Amino acid sequence: IYILHRAEDITELVTLQEQKIEQIKINQDLQTKSDNMNEELNQIAKGLKSGTFEDPQMTLKRAVKELESERAKLHNLLSNAPAYISLLESPEHVFTFTNPLYQQLINDRQVIGKNIKEAWPELEGQGFYELLDDVYNSGKPYIGTETPSLIDKGNGVMEQRYMNFVYQPVFDINNQVSGISAYVYDVTDQVLANKKLEELTKELLKSEDKYKKLTESLEVEINKRTIELENEKQKLTSLLINAPAMICVFNGPNHVYEFTNPNYDHLFKGRSLLGKTVREAQPEMEGQVFFDLLDNVYKTGKPYIGNEIPGSIERDGVLETVYFNFVYQPLFNKKKEVEGITVFAFD
């Protein structure tokens, strides 16, 4: 028996076959990607033709325009609020915003970009620097009532004023304090009126005989002072009503929510408000005065101030009666047409 044995080196052949298989896979992948890209291009072309597809650049531009519009509205809101408002950033309390009333308070000093000590050197030793530091470090607001302060009104002339104010911490997206918003109200006239009344009362009580002789004139003076105090109280009440407690912005004749601050959201906790009309968001308030008042302010362009107005609000399925002080302030566009309403409210 004979066995014939013949060996042949086929390494190159196998390598070529493997390379061919790999090339086929690559070609298939390229074809798949090409098909997908063609399909996406076809969809985009169809969308552009039908108007249902929006260019990403256009989407970005529209989003930026909307953000700029919202920023302008908020800036307008702060600029026209009946309070001295400023925004401070960083631990050094650097001014980044002041409204026109605040500029009047500081005699039109240029404070933007300056820290509180550079902008208000006369406050040294009056405790305000320390209060700002405490608010920034603790994250807790501070409320001052009839607080005395010496203010440089120009040429080194110091003037004693009395202020009600709120230092409110501002938090960033990481819930860290990034700055402080300051809302200030000048109540000097009210404080001085109270002091004058106290001094007058003390003088009259020194002598019973003198008091008896002056009874008639005193009654007239007391009535006069009482009216003055009531007027000052009304001014203060108006300022407090417009303070940034519960704030929202409505747009259009149907009063669609465009902006709400955290205090306002807390009042209607658990509800989605933005984008809804006030009647959709608060159906339980139908038949109360608020909807009609909003309609009238939008129609007439005249603000409405409400004091101690009762309202029934649904919370956890139960209607609660809450009393509000509030202002409905119309917002005008460039054509001086009413386009919305700003609400400042206190519970």
Rank of each mutant, 00 (worst) to 15 (best):
Leu4Arg: 01
Arg6Lys: 00
Ala7Phe: 14
Thr11Cys: 10
Leu16His: 04
Gln17Val: 07
Glu18Val: 08
Glu18Ile: 11
Glu18Cys: 01
Gln23Gly: 06
Gln23Asp: 11
Ile24Tyr: 00
Lys25Gln: 11
Asn27Tyr: 10
Gln28Arg: 15
Lys33Glu: 05
Lys33Ile: 03
Asn36Glu: 14
Glu40Thr: 01
Phe53Ala: 01
Gln57His: 13
Gln57Asn: 10
Met58Asp: 13
Glu68Leu: 09
Glu70Met: 12
Glu70Pro: 05
Arg71Ala: 04
Leu78Ala: 10
Asn80Ile: 05
Ile85Trp: 06
Ser86Asp: 15
Leu88Ser: 00
Glu92His: 09
Phe95Val: 11
Phe95Leu: 06
Tyr102Glu: 07
Leu105Glu: 07
Ile106Pro: 04
Gln110Val: 04
Ile112Val: 09
Ala119Pro: 03
Glu122Arg: 03
Leu131Trp: 09
Leu132His: 08
Val135Ile: 05
Tyr136Gln: 03
Ser138Phe: 01
Lys140Cys: 05
Gly144Pro: 09
Thr145Gly: 03
Thr145Pro: 04
Glu146Pro: 00
Thr147His: 11
Ser149Asp: 06
Ile151Lys: 00
Lys153Val: 11
Gly156Phe: 08
Val157His: 05
Met158Pro: 00
Asn164Asp: 13
Tyr167Phe: 14
Ser178Tyr: 05
Tyr183Val: 13
Val187Pro: 06
Val187Ser: 07
Thr188Ala: 06
Asp189Ser: 05
Gln190Gly: 05
Val191Ile: 15
Leu192Ile: 13
Asn194Ile: 05
Lys195Val: 05
Lys196Thr: 03
Glu199Ile: 06
Thr201Trp: 12
Ser207Glu: 10
Lys212Ile: 07
Thr215Ser: 08
Leu218Arg: 01
Glu221His: 08
Lys224Cys: 12
Arg225Ala: 12
Leu229Val: 09
Leu229Asp: 12
Leu239Glu: 03
Val249Leu: 15
His255Lys: 13
Phe259Val: 05
Thr260Phe: 13
Asp265Ile: 07
His266Arg: 12
Phe268Ile: 06
Gly270Glu: 14
Leu273Thr: 12
Leu274Ile: 15
Gly275Lys: 08
Thr277Asn: 03
Arg279His: 07
Glu280Ala: 04
Ala281Asn: 01
Met285Val: 08
Glu286Pro: 02
Leu294Gly: 00
Asn296Ile: 04
Gly301His: 08
Lys302Leu: 02
Pro303Ser: 02
Tyr304Leu: 05
Gly306Asp: 12
Ile309Tyr: 10
Ser312Gly: 04
Arg315His: 14
Gly317Arg: 10
Leu319Ile: 14
Tyr323Gly: 09
Tyr323Phe: 15
Phe324Asp: 09
Phe326Gln: 04
Tyr328Glu: 13
Gln329Trp: 15
Glu339Val: 15
Thr342Asp: 11
